[in-house]
Design a protein around this nucleic acid. Sequence first.
DNA 1: CACGTGACGGTTGAG
DNA 2: CCCTCAACCGTCACG
Length: 361
Amino acid sequence: MVINAQYFNITEQTYGEVNQLGGVFVNGRPLPNAIRIRIVELAQLGIRPCDISRQLRVSHGCVSKILARYNETGSILPGAIGGSKPRVTTPNVVKSIRDYKQADPGIFAWEIRDRLLADGVCDKYNVPSVSSISRILRNKIGNLSQPSQYEGSKPSPPQLPYNPVYPYSYPNAISPTGAKLGNPPGVSVTAGHVSLSRAWPSVHTVSNILGIRAFMDPSAIAGPDGYQQKMEDWASVNRASFPSAHAVNGIDKSHMEADIKYNQSSSNLSGYVPACAYSATNQYGVYGGPPGNYGHHWQSQGASLAHPNNGAMTHSSNIHTAMTFKRPPDVGDRKPPSPLSKHQHEALSSVHALSLPTTAS
DNA sequence: CACGTGACGGTTGAG
DNA sequence: CCCTCAACCGTCACG
């Protein structure tokens, strides 16, 4: 919608807010993927969450959350925002209900429910409630005599049962959603692209847009290096850091389109932009944030980046060793609080070309 | 001091 | 279209 317009508006007015650490964020919206990636990267390098928080100027709660999610799901992407959960009354389920009803017109809703479970049409997590079944009988099936619409359309793509439980379907990417993840250009993918590319105009852009120049401007702030760096970070995020990011993704996503998403970044953000027409609408454009999965759905994210397991660093070839991004979560250990040595820092910086000030506090 | 957690105010998008 | 609702977001404050 507003796409460009929005952008402009933004420029004028500032969309973001500044947190206690001086970082810029957009309330209600996820952090840009670049920052998310950065958080994970730094953590992988052994940098403590508190330091990451200070360095990137992201609240520790957020850092904690992102890292926890990453360790758990292997994805750095935010969850799908908005929309509704996948309906339990999928065409397949409706069809089954209809079949049961046809076979036994006197069947009760609760009996249907039991049968859905017994037949494996649904599992305990996605089986419709009795009331839902009643509604289906009444509204969708109603007259058995008539061919239901469903039938006609019979869309039923092979639908697997949803996994409401796990919004992140990361597991094998098999999930219905998962499947889609990979391929469909649509959503998630796009989002990813978007995020990177367009999302991140450039630090400067961002700052300007947000009107927070002050923060970033060292002179203005007089702050410790931190500030300055911050700028860099954002900038770097956009650019330099990307490579790494990309690495990250690369890893994870192995199968997913993910590659695209992040990879590009290193090469150049702009490339992918087109893909997503979508996000434009989002503030992201403005924010710089990536819509990530946003637009989309449930599944998309699930797969998200990839997770550790498969991860396999497919692309990693290029990646700097430093980033062993994703190790299997099990390994768990997100690094011990060990103080990362400066050494590590150096490594990191070199990798990303960032200078990490380690929050020298 | 580090960090996990939940309240809070916000956005999003399917239905 | 507009509204509702439920999901997610990041920040903040508390423990």
